[in-house]
Simulated scan of single mutants.
Amino acid sequence: MCRSIKTLRPPFEEHVTDEDVRAAALQYVRKISGFRAPAAHNAEAFERAVDAVAKATDELLSSLTVRGR
């Protein structure tokens, strides 16, 4: 997996911003698509994917329960 994506859940991160989530989503989409920046004809699909991954990440993080906390 992409080494620049950091863990966003406690106890690794106490406060996660929208920017943190978006950055992780962008890195993930870059990794799986193989594009650092997509060509103009792929830009819309690329941005939709980043938005979808960011939304799924938000949902996951808000649903997790960390034991012992």
Rank of each mutant, 00 (worst) to 15 (best):
K6F: 11
T65D: 05
V29Y: 03
L26G: 01
R36Y: 09
V16N: 03
S4M: 06
R9E: 14
L8G: 03
A37W: 05
L61F: 07
R22A: 09
I5H: 04
T7G: 05
A25K: 07
E19A: 12
A54W: 06
S4R: 06
R9P: 06
R22W: 12
D18N: 12
C2G: 01
A52D: 13
R22H: 11
T7F: 09
K31Q: 11
R48E: 11
E59T: 14
A23C: 04
F12S: 02
F12K: 00
G68C: 06
V53T: 09
A37P: 05
L26Q: 07
I5G: 01
R3F: 05
F35I: 00
L61D: 01
I5V: 15
I32V: 15
V16K: 04
H15S: 10
A24P: 02
I5A: 03
A54N: 03
H15C: 04
I32W: 14
A54L: 10
H41I: 01
E44N: 12
N42D: 13
E13Q: 09
G34H: 07
F46K: 05
D20E: 07
I32S: 03
A49F: 07
D58V: 10
S4I: 02
A37K: 14
E14M: 14
T17W: 02
A56G: 11
A24V: 01
P11H: 08
E47M: 13
D51S: 15
E14V: 11
P11A: 10
D18K: 13
S33L: 04
V53K: 12
